[in-house]
Design a protein around this nucleic acid. Sequence first.
DNA 1: ATCGAATCCGCGAGAATCCC
DNA 2: GGGATTCTCGCGGATTCGAT
Length: 346
Amino acid sequence: MLFRTSGPKAGWPGNRLTIARPYCKEGLSGKLNHTLEKNKGLSAKEVLALVKRCGEKDPEALKEFFRLYSNDIYNFPLRVFHLDEDAASDFYLYAFERLKTGQRFRSFQGKSSFRTWFYTVLRNMLIDWMRTVHEVKTVEKQKSDDESRNLQWIETVADPDTEKSDDSDFMEHFHHILDELPRDLSIVFKLVFIYYLDLGLADWDYLLENSSMDRGEMARRIADQKNELAERSTGNLSQQDKITSLYLSVLELKTKRSRLMAEMETRNVDPGEEAELERIDHLIEKKQNQREKLIQKRKKGHFVVRAPYRFVSEILDIPEGSVSVMMSRIMDAFRMDSEIRKAILD
DNA sequence: ATCGAATCCGCGAGAATCCC
DNA sequence: GGGATTCTCGCGGATTCGAT
């Protein structure tokens, strides 16, 4: 333990954090949702303004931020990764030190919901913290042993896709390509990825002109679809949690293993200890395999939520096969673009 | 509780066919 | 001839069930 404090005490805000996401029933990863309460009385704009001021290191804003969210920071490792209260206290102080510099806040642009962003920041900070703690305890020793390659591997792929650096240039280029496509193709693409992309006024005009649905029915269908996709996205986030959680378990097991090895070096080996070592190795392998499977799934894009072609075909009154063909034409158009191709290959 | 095998079913890709 | 539509097939997710 790095520090000793004793959990969220009286005087800490009892409020829980939930920033409203219009069509998110369960909230982030379910588990987190239970700890979070709607908006804490702030609108999305007010949250954005507060975060912006925190990014400028405004002491009053930082004070207000911690007044609102310190309980959530403390609860995060408890509820999401089932760590104990000591760990939660240590993590809280670690997170506090890092957040108060204001730098982290600058990555929030208000494009995603605050919850999504905050959750990602907390998760990555938790990983950083775990690494720091574990490195101090064990890694130096472990890096010199036979398994160092394995450990380095798992460290480098902890969470490669989260909290990406600024990709706004790429997104701008991507939207440019999308806008240059014929309207029917760009609409199909936007409908398939309706969870991530917004329909513009011109898109709505096109849809209403080309569909037998009236505005109300279409809006309802799209909202329903978004609801469904939001649920899927929530499921994906818990898969994402699982990747992190498995990573943390492996670190924990490696710590345990090296401690046991060190003990065994100092005295006669108990046969029970040999068996324990074997059990730990087996667990580590199992968890790494599980994690690798999930990472492969993520790489294949299974964590991206797409609307089924049936939805698009119903909206546009065209056969599903046509949606499929149009999507492949769109993908070809994207593949033809050197900048996008480069991003895909990276 | 966890895992793996078997089965079912929905979905999308792409080939085949149709239509303008 | 080229785009639209239909059809088929394979993949992968979901579910069930038995073994451990």
